[in-house]
Design a protein around this nucleic acid. Structure first.
Lengths: 115, 115
DNA sequence: CAACTAATACGATAGTCTACGTACTACGAC
DNA sequence: GTCGTAGTACGTAGACTATCGTATTAGTTG
């Protein structure tokens, strides 16, 4: 069997993405931070899990990335030894126009206030 | 002691409302439904808990309304034997401009798709 | 006061969530 | 093949969640 297919990752199709799931995925500070990081990258730009500093262990990090992927918020793919992550901007903006932007704008405002 | 003050309800001040908390409150289908209902009322219009049909017991309903109130999403006040609920539109729109609208627009789209 | 209604409080339960540590796998470089 | 790096799997502990049923409180109406 091919090594690539053995490491395939399950992603929800657009039709399977639920608003409640997206909101739940984004309702955790750590995951919101991950999304904030990915958001400020260029469209379609990817980052490995290790690019974001989170004050938790690797297994916890894996967990949060998985929650985001299963909610349909991010896309994950193996690239050699790394696992690259990217926001599913186009999918989300098609399903829920303006939603991600509004949430991240709100997040930016809150971060400012928190100083 | 006065009967009115004995039935006072705790609400977070604007400065205490957290984006994560709001998103979490809205990440439950039942609570999203409550907010959808309140959203289509006039500005500042109130509705009793019983105005919204939820397929759960009263105590569960109480729980969900409380989660919304504690997250800062709704305002609750006693009016005689009823407890009236209203969206905190102005507060939320000041804190997070456009957020509530974007989420409810997304919800409306999803409801349409679900048929 | 008694009866009725709207909603809360309490206590229980089953399930989920976050976090951890340890052991493991996949890949690339040597 | 061996080593290092990146990330997964698994099991677990502790906190929180959703739900229920029952008992209770506050207010209205008779």
């Amino acid at each position: 069997m091919s090594t690539a297919s053995a490491r395939a990752l399950e992603h929800p199709e657009c039709g399977e993405i639920r608003l409640e799931g997206v909101l739940h995925a984004l309702s955790d500070p750590m995951r919101l931070r991950i999304v904030r990081f990915l958001w400020q990258l260029e469209e379609d730009e990817e980052a490995p899990c290790s690019a974001i500093e989170l004050a938790v262990t690797k297994s916890t990090t894996t967990h949060h990335f998985r929650v985001l992927r299963e909610a349909g918020v991010i896309n994950q793919a193996y690239r050699g030894t790394a696992k690259m992550n990217a926001l599913r901007r186009r999918d989300l903006d098609t399903l829920f126009p303006g939603l991600l932007g509004a949430i991240l704008a709100a997040d930016a405002l809150q971060c400012e206030r928190d100083g």
